[in-house]
Structures are given as structure tokens and as C-alpha cells.
Nucleic acid binder design. Sequence first.
DNA 1: TCCTTAATGGTCAGTACGACTATAAATCGC
DNA 2: GCGATTTATAGTCGTACTGACCATTAAGGA
Lengths: 263, 263
Amino acid sequence: MEGYDKHAFEPFAVTVDLAVFTVRAGALQVLLIERGQEPYAGCRALPGGFVLPKESAGTAARRELAEETGLSDVSGLHLEQLRTYSEPDRDPRMRVVSVAYAALLPDAPEPRGGGDAASAHWLPYDGLGPLAFDHERILADARERIGAKLEYTCLATAFCPPEFTLGELQQVYETVWGAVLDRPNFRRKVLATPGFVEPVPGAARLTGGRGKPAALYRAGDATALHPPLLRAAAGSPPPTTSPSPPASSSSSSTPTSSKGSSS
Amino acid sequence: MEGYDKHAFEPFAVTVDLAVFTVRAGALQVLLIERGQEPYAGCRALPGGFVLPKESAGTAARRELAEETGLSDVSGLHLEQLRTYSEPDRDPRMRVVSVAYAALLPDAPEPRGGGDAASAHWLPYDGLGPLAFDHERILADARERIGAKLEYTCLATAFCPPEFTLGELQQVYETVWGAVLDRPNFRRKVLATPGFVEPVPGAARLTGGRGKPAALYRAGDATALHPPLLRAAAGSPPPTTSPSPPASSSSSSTPTSSKGSSS
DNA sequence: TCCTTAATGGTCAGTACGACTATAAATCGC
DNA sequence: GCGATTTATAGTCGTACTGACCATTAAGGA
């Protein structure tokens, strides 16, 4: 952009929209508000708001995150810019360009407190109805981005409390990906990645529910996963190990196998 | 964002900035303009411009790409939104929010023609001096993004002409990553990925220079690489094949014995 | 003609990973 | 208290993937 011609551009309103995720009760949940005014009155929407004159979009996003969740300290939460949505007609009232952010929360206190948060609630991602504006698209993009980043970053720990078990970490992957992972293999992979997690020294084992108590871990100092933890390719049948997959009824093809794994 | 309060926001100027890359002469090159006016007069900058009233940012980016390169048809070129830069003081004159895009060009005709393109030129990425505004940062972000996407997408073919040799494709990887790859292994990997490249039927082999002529390939219809083509981890010494690492203290894993799990 | 260069074809070992079995340590039902 | 159940953890085995490396082919140049 060379010289600025004051007549060459239209002023835009700039907002941030937040896709705030958490994993609770084995489901991926999203923080949504219910709109009270037109357009889209009564419709669910992503929390967000205007970027103030002296703010960057990132600053505005973190401010909105604090306001909407009611949390006193959001400085440690993972907040990441997704992309910017700028279709001319995305808001019927005026020209609004929105910078979308994705945020990850460890656990999910029901939001309380000021501002728009009055109407903010956690809702499961699956089965959501239509959202206001282009928020459905933004939310879908956010989920895809988060899922992809689980593969090659240590982002999953951002969904976990400061100390967590490997089972909880695995649940994050399974929930976001919508897939079931093999527990011993997941464990082997995570522990083999230096800096992903580190054991809690005191080793107070968690004995909440049934079963053998699990060891506690903290997030390590690594940020990237090398090599990555790949989710299975979309339409790829599991690389058929056994030469005869559909072994009719119950005749176990190999002396050691016959777990009837894949549905 | 609930109701709009006309006094709650400041109008912003919204621009697009373009990081346009090509691979030429074994070097990664970038399209830059030279600013004629203050601020940063005489300084190099990314091409870009205002988003017009009826445009989306993506539309503006493609329009600018055509204007700056002088190419008549930019519809087939890879253009991808990077992220948005919105620091309040990033432009000393006024509040400007810029949506950055990265574009990939197969070959690099020196730009000609109208508009700002008068001063647009290809320059090697390495050894660039300082750029105007925060464009240095934008360019670095763009390069990192492109490098990362080469790992798990088929993006590299966007740098190549419609028909290319595997050597040319490998050169793209080596140039963007700044690393040297083993040619037989690269070949094996690319050909083993379905849909990455497909041989040109006529199979007119390219016999330009010395050596055995290379077969020609076209980009396939795949977009993702499964599994990815990973570049070596940053600070990882190559996984010592030789049976005697630094045979000092740490006798690492013996096949059946301690797996060295806990720290 | 011999040497150089570059593309292509192949081997081999180590690692990574999926599928699976086995054991340990807790709670629950009785 | 005892076994069934549940969950965590340990380990095995075979295949696929990958890096390092060698061999062959087909061109150009001295």
C-alpha cells in the first residue's frame, strides 16, 4: 500500500469472535451466548465484541474471554488466532470484519458474572443448531484447526488441569477427534515424546474412581510433537494385517487373534 | 457481540498484505515493492492495499495479486490467508488492520504493468534488509507457514509449472526448508503417496541439461499427505545408526530390557 | 572413449506403530 | 472377605515407514 488516499477506503468495524472449547463429561463443549436483539434474536452465537481503539485484536480477544467466562485470570489460557472473516454481507447492518480466535479451557465452570456473560453457557459441540451470522462456519473451522494441531503440537495439555492422568489426556484426543485410541499405544507414544508430559514427583496417584489409580503428570516444556501423533486418515481402512478380514462367523483365523476389533 | 452501540467502536482501515513466494534459481524469492512515500520511504515493503467496500479480504488479495504481478490470470494460483495483524501502532498514520495472505507462484516472470507494480521486484528471501511496518514479521510468519504446510499437504506443486520433474519438486522442498534431501528417498516417498503426482502419459522426458533425462509429472488430485513428509526436527542429531554412539554412560535401550520409561 | 552428471532402481537396518496379551491395583457386589 | 469388574501399566510381535547407502542407466562434455 503506497500513499493513503483518504477516499480510497471505507471504514470498517472490527470485532473478535471467540470459539471457546473445553472437554467435559467426555464431550467437546463450546461457550455460546444467546442473542437478545435482532438480527438473529434468540439465536445462539459465539461470544465476542468490538476491538477497542487502543487494543490489538489479540488483546481484545483475551479481554472478551475474561468477560465471557467470568474467570479472574485468563493469562495462562491458550488463545490462538484462527483467521479473519470479511465477507461484505456477513452482518446485515454494517460492514464488520471479524478476527476469530480459538480458546482452550481445562475445566468448565459455568460462566458467571458481567457483561454479555449473563447469557453465556457451555453447550456440547455435537448437535448444535444453527448459529447467528457465519458463526457456524467459524466454529467448524475452529474445531478442525484444534483437531489438526493436536497431531503435531502439545496443545492437548491446554484442555487439562495442571496435573492430570494419561487417561484424561487420552480422553482429550478421543473427544476432539471423535475416535477411540488404544490405551497402551497412546501411553507409549506420549511418554516417548520428550517434553510432552513429565511425572509429578510426589507421585500422589489419583484414586478417584474404580480401577487402579493413575499416575499424575504435568505438561512439559515442549510445544511440538516430533514425530506427530497422527489420527487415522479419513477414508482409509485399517491396513489389513490379516489376509482374510471377514472370517465369516467365529472361526478365529489366527491362534492369537479374534478380538473382533473393527466394527 | 450483542447490540451495536455506534459509539462503542472506532472505524478501522482494513488492508491486505501479500507475501508472494516463488522458487527461482534454487532460491526462495519474494515479491517486494519499494515505497516512494513516508513513512518508510525508500524502504521495501510487501505489496498490498485497501479492501474495497464491496470486497472480502480474499477478493482484495487476489485483485492485488493480479495488479502487482501483472499476470492476466491469477485464478489458479495458490492464495491462502495467513493471519491478521492489528497492533494499534503498526502504522504511524492511522489505525490499520491488515489481513496477510501468502501466495505461491510457479515461475517468476519479472512483474510488469500497472499500479504499484511499477516498483515490484523479486528478491531472494535470504539476506533481505529491514522491511516497512511489521512486514518483516509477516514475511517470517509466511515462510514458516509455507514450510510447515509442505510437510503435510501437496502444496509444493503450487511452486512448480504444470509439468515438472521430481528433481524440480525436490528442489522446492530443499529451498523452502533450507535442507538437503536424499533423492531416492524423496522419490520413493512422493511416488508412494497416491494423488500427489501423476506421470504425464506422453512421457516426453526432459533432456535439458546434463545427465539422464527426467520423467515429467503433473500435480495429482490429492491435497493432504498421509503420512506427512517430515523435515528433520530442529535440534535433533540424526538418529545415530552406527552401533557405537558416544559409548560413555547412557547405555540406552536394550531390546528386551528396561524401556527407560520414568525419568 | 572415458569421465561426469543426474535419474532411477534397489537393499538393509532401525524405528515407529497398530493389534494384542498379560499383570497390577483399586472399587463394587455379594 | 472374596471374586468380578474396572482401569492402569507392562510387554510382545509383525508390518510399514524411513534414512543411509549402493548400483545401474542415460545423457553431455573433455
